[in-house]
Design a protein around this nucleic acid. Structure first.
Length: 128
DNA sequence: CAGATGACTCCCA
DNA sequence: CTGGGAGCCATCT
């Protein structure tokens, strides 16, 4: 942590905070929402700087695009399962079911963020 | 400014 | 499935 306060990280954290419990998002999606020269790797780096003990930002809800978890040693999967996120036998979160659609459009404009680009994916299955 | 690093992602064999 | 390589960007030396 330097004396500089990169607003970019604050923006990343702010977006991550919008992810509701039981939902997950990918590093790339977060980067797309934050915009302004931010990419998946930057988001991952921001999460690393945040620290696993931080209870302000639900960092555990940010996983890889395939639903895999890169974090080793951390109990990210346990935290997600406790929130209702389901995993398959390969240890991947079922993104088709838990993928976060992004923050509310009004919230995006109010905070000057970019809404997530439209996807051709079919509707998410309802939890049952 | 240049080089190294990193909780990413995509493509190809 | 595995592994290697490239592209991407912010931050630190």
């Amino acid at each position: 942590m330097s004396e500089t306060t990169p607003a970019l990280y604050e923006r990343i954290y702010l977006v991550v905070k919008q992810i509701p419990a039981g939902a997950v998002s990918s590093y790339g999606d977060i980067a797309a929402i934050v915009g302004g020269g931010c990419d998946a790797r930057t988001v991952g780096y921001a999460m690393a700087e945040l620290g696993p003990r931080d209870d302000e930002v639900p960092w555990q809800r940010v996983v890889s695009r395939d639903g895999t978890i890169s974090t080793r040693g951390l109990r990210q999967r346990e935290l997600l399962e406790a929130e209702g996120v389901t995993f398959d036998s390969q240890g991947r979160a079922i993104m088709a079911r838990h993928r976060w659609r992004g923050p509310d459009a009004a919230w995006c404009e109010a905070n000057h963020f970019t809404p997530l680009p439209p996807r051709d994916e079919p509707e998410q299955l309802e939890l049952f």
